[in-house]
Amino acid sequence: MKILITGGSGFLGKHLIRHLLAEKYHVIALLRKNSDISRLPVKDQQLSLVFIEELDYDNFFKAEAPFSAMVHCATNYGRTATGLSEVLQDNLMWPTLLLEYGIKYSCGLFINTDTFFAKQQKAQSYLQAYVLSKYLFREILKAKSSIIPVVNCRLEHVYGPEDGAAKFTTYILRELLKNAETIELSDGWQKRDFVYIEDVARAYALILNYLPRFRGFSEYEIGTGESHSIREFVTTLKNMIPGNNTILDWGALPMRRNEIEDSFADISALLNLGWAPKFDLNKGIYHLLEHHKVHGI
Rank of each mutant, 00 (worst) to 15 (best):
G10V: 01
H19V: 00
L21S: 10
Y25H: 12
I28W: 04
L30H: 00
L30A: 04
L31Y: 09
D36E: 09
L47A: 07
L49Q: 05
E54M: 11
F61E: 08
A63R: 13
E64I: 03
E64S: 06
S68K: 10
A69L: 04
T80E: 14
G83Y: 12
S85E: 14
Q89N: 14
N91Q: 06
L92E: 01
L97E: 09
L97H: 06
L97V: 12
G102H: 00
S106C: 13
C107Y: 08
C107N: 03
F110T: 04
N112K: 09
N112L: 06
T115R: 05
Q124E: 14
S125R: 09
Y126A: 09
L127H: 04
Q128K: 15
K134M: 09
L136I: 03
F137W: 01
K144R: 12
I147W: 12
I147P: 00
V150W: 00
C153K: 01
R154L: 00
V158R: 00
A166Q: 11
K167R: 12
T169I: 02
S186N: 11
R192W: 08
I207S: 01
Y210R: 07
S218N: 13
E221S: 15
T224G: 02
T224D: 01
S227M: 15
R231Y: 10
K238A: 14
N239I: 06
N239Q: 09
N239M: 10
N239H: 15
P242Q: 14
N244R: 14
D249G: 09
N258Y: 14
D262C: 03
F264D: 01
S268Q: 15
A269D: 12
L271Y: 11
L273K: 02
G274D: 07
K278L: 11
Y286Q: 10
H287N: 07
